[in-house]
């Protein structure tokens, strides 16, 4: 009960290792990343192995997921965006599985480490920059001036757009990290109150623990969804500079 609610996020090296002064110790987060990858891969491979015309439970779940990701890409990027399907699907599946596996008591939520989410978001943003510059060249800088801006506003719009561009990967990383961390802290605090409250009053925080735990199932999905849809939106912005001017379809 005296334990800090933040204690669950502390990482201690299980197998200390370092290469050239860089600490690459194996800790709980690393192990659970492997677990997430293993569980996700096994689930997907098993779902894809039977390929029946009338799908079983696992297969229809996997088909739903693929269809869902496909719709996200089609809605935000159009047909051309399907070339990003592997990236988008990998991110979605990894985040979804790590959010859900983290909800099992005693496990670790990989996405509650900001470095994990930051690597994903900067990767996505970096790819969107590379795609934008390779497709549009220097004209990609025109993303800083939204279409329809009056000439006298341009010097004002450029700093504003630069800030909102820099804010993109940061908000992407912080949102996922903060939501997962906050949810788990809340659960730890409420459950601490349950244990400390005894029988007379302890039932009240316990009810809330159960309710918040249920809510966290929704949050786990929503956060994976938001991260993925924003990945699509950012890639789509780089892809179709100012809407569909150049890639009309």
């Amino acid at each position: 009960m005296e334990e800090s609610p933040l204690h669950q996020f502390e990482l201690h090296p299980w197998i200390p290792m370092s290469i050239g002064g860089v600490d690459i110790s194996i800790n709980k987060a690393v192990v659970f990343m492997w677990v997430v990858i293993a569980v996700a891969s096994v689930c997907m491979v098993m779902a894809g192995s039977s390929r029946k015309l009338v799908p079983g439970k696992l297969q229809s779940l996997a088909e739903m997921m693929v269809e869902f990701i496909r719709n996200m890409i089609l809605e935000t990027m159009g047909k051309d965006g399907m070339r990003f399907f592997p990236l988008v699907a990998t991110l979605f599946v990894f985040i979804l599985f790590s959010n859900y596996i983290g909800l099992i008591p005693g496990t670790y939520t990989v996405t509650s480490q900001i470095i994990v989410t930051a690597v994903f978001s900067f990767l996505v943003y970096g790819i969107s920059l590379v795609v934008g510059f390779s497709l549009h060249g220097v004209k990609f800088l025109g993303i800083l001036v939204p279409p329809g801006t009056p000439g006298w506003l341009v010097p004002l719009m450029i700093p504003i757009e630069i800030i909102s561009q820099i804010a993109r990967p940061i908000s992407l990383a912080v949102r996922l990290f903060a939501n997962m961390t906050a949810g788990h802290v809340m659960l730890a605090v409420l459950f601490g109150l349950t244990v400390g409250g005894g029988v007379l009053i302890g039932w009240l925080p316990f009810v809330f623990t159960v309710a918040i735990y249920g809510l966290e199932f929704g949050i786990a999905f929503i956060q994976a969804y938001i991260f993925t849809i924003l990945t699509c939106v950012y890639l789509g912005d780089a892809f179709h500079l100012h809407g569909h001017e150049e890639h009309a379809h």
């Binding site: 800030i163 820099i166 804010a167 949102r175 929503i222 938001i226």
Partner: peptide
């Protein structure tokens, strides 16, 4: 419900992140 929740969470962080970056 989920679409709305997602949108609300998204807009909140966007406001804050831009302010912090600026």
């Amino acid at each position: 419900l989920y679409a709305g929740l997602g949108q609300a969470v998204r807009i909140g962080t966007e406001l804050l992140a831009a302010l912090i970056v600026g």
